[in-house]
Each structure stands twice: as C-alpha cells, then as structure tokens.
C-alpha cells in the first residue's frame, strides 16, 4: 500500500519512564493478578472462619511479637524504598547503589522474623483448616518477599556492573521499588487477618 508520511517521531525519547513505559504497566498488571490472588486468599480465610464453630480452631491466637516486628520493619522500609525510587528518577547512580544495598537488607531482615512467625501460629498446616489457611497466607506472602528480594539482589549487582548507568536500568529500579511497596501494602491486610482477626 502506498504511504503518506504525516508524523515525525524521531524527536521522542528512546525510552519511556513511568506511565510512558510498558514495563510500568506490566508491573501493575502483575500486581493486579497477585492482588486478586491475595484477595481471594483472604476471602477463603473468612469463608472458613464463618464455617468454624470457633476461631481459631483448636489453637490459641498467634503470638504477636514476630509478626508485629516484621510489620514495623516492612512499613519502615517504605521510606528508603521511596528514596531509592526518587534517586533513580534523578539518575543518581551512587545513591541508587547505596539505596539498593539498604533495600536488599530490608528484604532479608523480614525473612528472619518470618522464620519465627510460623511457630508463633501455634498450629501446623496439617492440623486443621485454620492452620492450613494461616500457613498458606504466610507462605504466599513469603514467596512475594523472596521474589522481590532476589530481584533486588540481582538489580544491585546490575547497578555495580557496566550496564548500570542507563535510563532503562533506572526504570527497572523504579519498578522494583513499586513492587516492594505492593509487597508491603498487601501484607497489612494479611497481618490483620492472621494476628488480629483471631483475637476478635
């Protein structure tokens, strides 16, 4: 077919940031998928709760300290996370490097507390349905923490490599920060479900 040029795009940037980036939208789409998953898991939690004569079933309510400490840690990590995202926007390589190392630590620390959260439930996954859903909620969130941690670690290595100083990399850092916020935000309703709903 014959063509007629009506538009010149050669002055556009070579990579879009934020809502002009496909990755940003992709990250949101994946967060929508996983958010649906978390939402469903919570619905199942309440479904089982309303079936049960008492809740929790055959177990004391979970100990609070490990989960609460982890929650505090996660919420606190949002601050450096937002900082990293800002620095990435400003393309400040040195600060992004430092920030990513901090965020890697912020990813490892909750896992340490997570180890103590499972015994704090005072029930095994194979004791009854309450145990099953409580372990599943914790496990599901742990998987998200782990994946984002690995992502952060790889990104940290990348930022120390020759590929670092590149708009595309800074975009990746921003998307990773976005995802960590998602991991933190989804934890809050899970925390309420696991630790406070049994105390109602």
């Amino acid at each position: 077919m014959k063509e007629r040029v009506v538009l010149d795009v050669s002055r556009l940037p070579l990579h879009g940031m934020g809502i002009a980036s496909a990755t940003w939208w992709g990250t949101y789409a994946f967060m929508l998928i996983e958010g649906s998953g978390f939402g469903l898991a919570i619905v199942v939690y309440f479904y089982l709760m309303f079936l049960a004569p008492q809740w929790p079933v055959d177990a004391p309510a979970p100990d609070l300290w490990a989960g609460t400490a982890l929650t505090a840690l996660l919420v606190a990590s949002v601050l450096p996370n937002i900082m990293v995202s800002r620095w990435a926007q400003k393309r400040n390589l040195k600060r992004v490097r430092i920030g990513l190392i901090v965020m890697s630590l912020c990813g490892i620390a909750p896992l340490v507390f997570r180890v103590f959260e499972f015994p704090a439930l005072h029930i095994r996954w194979d004791d009854n349905a309450y145990g099953s859903i409580a372990w599943t909620l914790l496990g599901l969130h742990t998987i998200h923490v782990l994946t984002d941690l690995i992502d952060t670690l790889v990104l940290t290595c990348l930022m120390f490599s020759r590929h670092a100083d590149n708009t595309r990399r800074y975009g990746d850092v921003e998307d990773n920060a976005l995802y960590w916020n998602f991991v933190v935000i989804t934890w809050l309703p899970l925390y309420a479900c696991i630790y406070w709903v049994p105390r109602l």
Partner: peptide, 8 residues
C-alpha cells in the same frame, strides 16, 4: 495512501 509516521 496510508498515513504513516517516520523517524523510528
């Protein structure tokens, strides 16, 4: 004729 863009 199809209107098109150029510059990629």
């Amino acid at each position: 004729a199809l209107p098109v863009s150029s510059g990629l």
